[in-house]
Design a protein around this nucleic acid. Structure first.
Lengths: 317, 317
DNA sequence: CCCGGCTTTGGTCATTTGCTCATCGACCTT
DNA sequence: AAGGTCGATGAGCAAATGACCAAAGCCGGG
């Protein structure tokens, strides 16, 4: 036996004492060494031991602390590269409150970097709200590319295509997709994708460094239905085929796989960027989006911005 | 107005975030700076703010054998119901270091109980420091009553009356004493105590479940003198009459008896709760308070929070 | 008894951190 | 509107910290 119980206990005792002097009394390791008659290195080891042995408990008394903890657990659980959790306001049923600010803050942080990036952006009410929280900036070094078509069924630009307002605000070159959101047939889609300008934009989207996307629910009030891209009946059919959510029009199942269905073959937007090469951040909250979010995390996206309640629900699954 | 509440709150948000990343996640300030899009110096300031604002609470989760032993011996020797001993920093002359944290932790423990209690609190620098270490809580079930008047000689509220800041932090109903600390005469004291509101508060104090009090020294730097409640000469007189310490203004002798003197007849605060029915905890450390502490232990108080050096000295007497 | 492996200790150096100072900019006063 | 004041910010620097490395004990096995 290399060490007796007593030795170990007294060593922990020493460690606790050193940790106390260091963390509570705020002494330097040199002073502690002098006080305890040890070398500074020994004190360093004791202090280090006191933390690694879990003797030192640090608590942050702020609501943010719980959110950061949830974010760390989300990252760990779903293998994400990025996670941010905002405090929930239990009184509000809004599905953008808080995360829109958080998303805007994150966008701002990324855009204020001098190194040029290609930023892809999806569509939807959540992103729309986020972009509205962006401060005016000038960052011509970045390029912003839309992942979805911006033309509705009636030929009018969809108001939820956010690339325009975003690029407008931040003063960056932008690359919209002059396409319908959904083509009338796979053949039309293929034809459209052959167009030179479209190909350039598609290629830009494929090489995006970071993408922000919303999660579309498929239940009551599904945006695909209310925006007229799919009929209730067809949606019901793909739901029975396993679809649980939608990103930029792409329907996916509970395992995060793009469903092989007639609708997806007509989606005119760019394929979702590969999470191996691109940071794809889902911005969504609320019970309606939970199933879709859960399926997409770690498969279609490797980042998330959500709220406390949704984070808790996701981790409980 | 230089700063709005929102600005300050969001700055604390940021500070909490930085503090969490630094202390809990163990990141370096450089990494945090990069993650939050700030300069390293700003992160340093935020981390520093998070500690100075009391957001970060460190506690050593290890019973140091020596301190446990001292606590047990104090309980045994003085017949106490409660004793807690924290490690000492031999180099520091602070009279609050460590015990403020310990007192805050104990207060928090008691306040987090669901069963409602009446908590009486005295005054002084030590308790003030302890309250500042309390985390924000919501415990409306408890009542906090002050044992002393909160009005100084000049009519201003004494800053060391801690019931306000404490109640503020923990969100509990509180009952201050709208009285001077010391009345100008015994008659004035009697008259004041006849007031209806005062009587209610006095009665609440008398039925307190637990009380936390500081110990006032009578030697150099006696708070009663520096706060102007008693003249040097008068203090010297009561010292010759046997007084060795003071709790909430009440002077007591080496046997722990309240001295029968002119000053005590004018003390306007509530009588000290009876140790037969109330847990009265003295929070004090340091050689200057040792005599008073020794006299009060087991007579006026039945609990103590002190530090290692003081505990050793008390047991050596 | 010596030797080799293992742990611990103290020294050295790169990294991290806290502090001071100069500068900038916003806001207030005159 | 000009000037002053205050706070915030970033650069530089010195102190503090943590990691690495070599040397010294310590033990069991031979």
């Amino acid at each position: 036996m290399a060490r007796t119980r007593d030795d170990e206990a007294s060593r922990l005792d020493e460690a606790a004492r050193a940790g106390w002097l260091y963390y509570v009394a705020g002494k330097t390791q040199d002073e502690i060494a002098q006080a305890l008659g040890l070398s500074r290195q020994s004190v360093q080891r004791l202090v280090s031991l006191s933390t690694s042995a879990g003797l030192v408990r640090v608590r942050i008394d702020h609501p943010i602390a719980a959110c950061l903890d949830l974010a760390a657990r989300l990252k760990d659980r779903f293998g994400l590269r990025f996670a941010e959790v905002t405090p929930s306001d239990p009184a509000s049923a809004s599905t953008t409150l808080g995360i829109a600010d958080a998303c805007a803050a994150d966008l701002e942080r990324r855009l204020s970097q001098p190194d040029p990036i290609i930023l892809a952006i999806g569509t939807g009410r959540t992103l729309k709200a986020a972009v509205e929280h962006l401060p005016p900036m000038q960052c011509r070094q970045h390029r912003i590319v839309s992942l979805t078509g911006n033309v509705g069924l009636d030929g009018a630009a969809s108001i939820y295509n956010v690339v325009f307002s975003m690029a407008d605000r931040v003063g960056a070159p932008h690359y919209p997709m002059p396409l319908p959101v959904v083509a009338t047939s796979p053949e039309e889609r293929a034809f459209l994708h052959e167009q030179k300008m479209i190909r350039a934009t598609l290629s830009l989207a494929a090489s995006a460094d970071v993408a922000f996307v919303g999660i579309g629910q498929l239940g009551t009030g599904a945006p695909l239905v209310s925006d007229g891209f799919i009929s209730e009946a067809e949606l019901e059919a793909v739901r029975r085929a396993g679809a649980v959510g939608e990103i930029c029009g792409w329907l996916f199942d509970a395992a995060g796989r793009i469903v092989d269905c007639a609708f997806n073959r007509r989606v005119a937007g760019a394929p979702l960027p590969d999470i191996a090469t691109c940071e794809v951040v889902a911005v969504a909250m609320g019970p309606a989006k939970q199933a879709g979010l859960h399926a997409a995390l770690g498969t279609l996206v490797n980042g998330v911005i959500t709220d406390e309640a949704t984070a808790i629900a996701l981790l409980a699954d």
